[in-house]
Simulated scan of single mutants.
Amino acid sequence: MRIEIYVVGKLKDFAKIGAQEYIKMLSKYADVKVLELKHTKISDEDQSTVKQDSQRLFSRLKESDYVILLDEKGEECDSFGFARTLESLILQHSKVIFIVGGPFGVDNSVKERADRLFSLSKLTMTHQLATVVLLEQLFRAFKIIHGERYHY
């Protein structure tokens, strides 16, 4: 299975190191890539920023892609539920794309395009931290799917 994570904005320092570490561990289970997409920098929240960032996302997506948008209003589940969902997606799709929005979120058109909205937590977190948490949960899910120990 191929998993792509589109992140609006750059991963820096701890997040880049953490992401690289989890991608290496995940390579046993799936081909996982993190693609950092340029974020349009404007000092205050501006809808044109969100639209430009969302257009960059759309330029990468194909109609056949299964897209999961990380969103604060998305469905929540525990690690076992996430593993069951991932296992089902593995059987149905050759590629799954997760989208981690930028500091001002994503345009509604991205929410409408997404096949599923998923929330990592009710807590608000930066795109950098959300990316590392997502990668950790993907790793944990694959461990659960394969019946391997997942608590450390």
Rank of each mutant, 00 (worst) to 15 (best):
residue 145 I to D: 11
residue 95 K to N: 10
residue 57 L to C: 02
residue 101 G to D: 04
residue 60 R to K: 15
residue 81 G to M: 09
residue 137 Q to G: 02
residue 61 L to E: 09
residue 123 L to M: 15
residue 66 Y to D: 05
residue 100 V to W: 02
residue 110 V to G: 03
residue 54 S to L: 01
residue 99 I to G: 03
residue 82 F to I: 10
residue 139 F to A: 00
residue 74 G to S: 08
residue 75 E to S: 14
residue 85 T to C: 03
residue 121 S to N: 09
residue 123 L to T: 11
residue 38 K to D: 11
residue 106 V to R: 05
residue 44 D to P: 03
residue 53 D to W: 00
residue 86 L to N: 08
residue 125 M to W: 15
residue 73 K to M: 05
residue 129 L to F: 12
residue 130 A to Y: 09
residue 131 T to G: 05
residue 76 E to H: 12
residue 55 Q to C: 01
residue 84 R to W: 00
residue 141 A to K: 06
residue 108 N to T: 12
residue 67 V to G: 04
residue 41 K to T: 12
residue 75 E to P: 01
residue 79 S to A: 08
residue 111 K to G: 03
residue 110 V to F: 09
residue 98 F to E: 01
residue 81 G to H: 11
residue 144 I to T: 04
residue 46 D to C: 10
residue 132 V to S: 00
residue 91 L to A: 13
residue 56 R to A: 08
residue 57 L to S: 01
residue 63 E to S: 14
residue 82 F to R: 06
residue 40 T to D: 10
residue 110 V to N: 08
residue 136 E to L: 04
residue 94 S to V: 11
residue 128 Q to H: 11
residue 138 L to G: 02
residue 44 D to G: 08
residue 65 D to G: 12
residue 78 D to M: 09
residue 41 K to W: 06
residue 114 A to L: 03
residue 125 M to D: 09
residue 72 E to M: 11
residue 38 K to R: 15
residue 74 G to D: 12
residue 77 C to W: 14
residue 115 D to S: 15
residue 89 L to G: 09
residue 141 A to S: 15
residue 127 H to W: 06
residue 52 Q to K: 15
residue 42 I to S: 10
residue 103 P to L: 13
residue 73 K to E: 13
residue 111 K to W: 07
residue 66 Y to E: 06
residue 68 I to D: 02
residue 121 S to H: 11
residue 100 V to I: 15
residue 48 S to T: 11
residue 91 L to E: 13
residue 61 L to D: 10
residue 130 A to Q: 11
residue 60 R to S: 12
residue 44 D to C: 12
residue 37 L to R: 07
residue 127 H to I: 15
residue 48 S to V: 08
residue 87 E to R: 13
residue 50 V to P: 00
residue 79 S to G: 10
residue 91 L to D: 12
residue 142 F to N: 04
residue 104 F to S: 14
residue 124 T to F: 11
residue 37 L to D: 13
residue 75 E to I: 13
residue 101 G to K: 04
residue 134 L to W: 01
residue 115 D to H: 14
residue 138 L to S: 02
residue 109 S to K: 11
residue 38 K to M: 10
residue 129 L to H: 07
residue 52 Q to P: 00
residue 69 L to P: 07
residue 123 L to W: 08
residue 127 H to R: 12
residue 96 V to Q: 00
residue 42 I to Y: 07
residue 89 L to E: 10
residue 90 I to W: 06
residue 100 V to S: 02
residue 90 I to P: 01
residue 65 D to T: 13
residue 54 S to N: 05
residue 92 Q to D: 06
residue 77 C to D: 07
residue 91 L to V: 04
residue 112 E to S: 10
residue 120 L to S: 05
residue 142 F to V: 06
residue 119 S to T: 03
